[in-house]
Design a protein around this nucleic acid. Sequence first.
DNA 1: AACTACTCCTGGAGGC
DNA 2: TGCCTCCAGGAGTAGT
Length: 291
Amino acid sequence: MPELPEVESLRRQLVHSLVGRTITSFEVGVPKLFQAGPGLSGGDLLGKTILRIGRKGKLLRWDLSDGLVLVIHLKLAGQIVHLSEDRQDLAHGGHPVPRWGFSLPHKATHVTMTFGDASTLYLTDIRQFARLRLLRTRDARRFLKDQRLGPDPLKAGFTPTYLYAALQRRSVPVKAVLLDQQVVGGIGNIYADESLWVARILPSRSARSIAEAEAKRLHLAVRRVLRYALREGVAVVPQGKAISDRPFPYCHGRAGAPCSRCGTTILKGRVAGRGTYWCPTCQIEIHARAA
DNA sequence: AACTACTCCTGGAGGC
DNA sequence: TGCCTCCAGGAGTAGT
């Protein structure tokens, strides 16, 4: 499940491997994954040069020549692998494909793109949720605006004050607010759990009940967790693997294991409709504001 | 407006 | 072994 660190890591690699390249072929095996704006089709990608690769939240944005933009969302299970002509790994990121991950293409490879240097980019997705949209610049701007994505958690717009105000407006669990892309763009299920563990806040706490000092802790925790994943992920994770495949240091995916802070067994349950992990001792329910 | 539930998908895990 | 059910979850949409 690619979240901000995975997408950003992928973006940085693609900047090196793709910018300046020209698209020479484009094939889509599962048509619904590719959507083209008015008057456009996949054929319009041919001959276009990749000028820039940006990221907004979990969205990748490729700026192409002739005023076209390719917007990619890997959703839960999308993966991109870019291989050179001699099949060397140039860039990879996203969700790994179990079992058949290393020999491309395979049956979950739904998009194949080749470039002027004879390199090939594969988009794989077991669950077929990923989406590619080819749009004209103006439509892309509107599309991204309509997403109403909140500030990037690693950038200046994401402040403790902003987070506190956002939490105050909602009565849903605090975790649901972290997952809301319109509040903050890029956090997914894994890093929401990890951030709440670091901040010692119970995921099911009503967002409104979060005190200002706690919001400040949570803000710091989000940044710490994302920066760690970004820093560690780029160098370590081999092709076919997602950053999120590494064991998480704190709580996500560690049900039944001891909390590294206090030794209490990590619990698993459902919060905001998602599998959620937490330490029942460190992340205790606090009614500080009600008292 | 705010919130909840359902939907899209397939592979893997666990029960019997 | 094989069949069944459940679970994984980002985000759009429909319903309350």
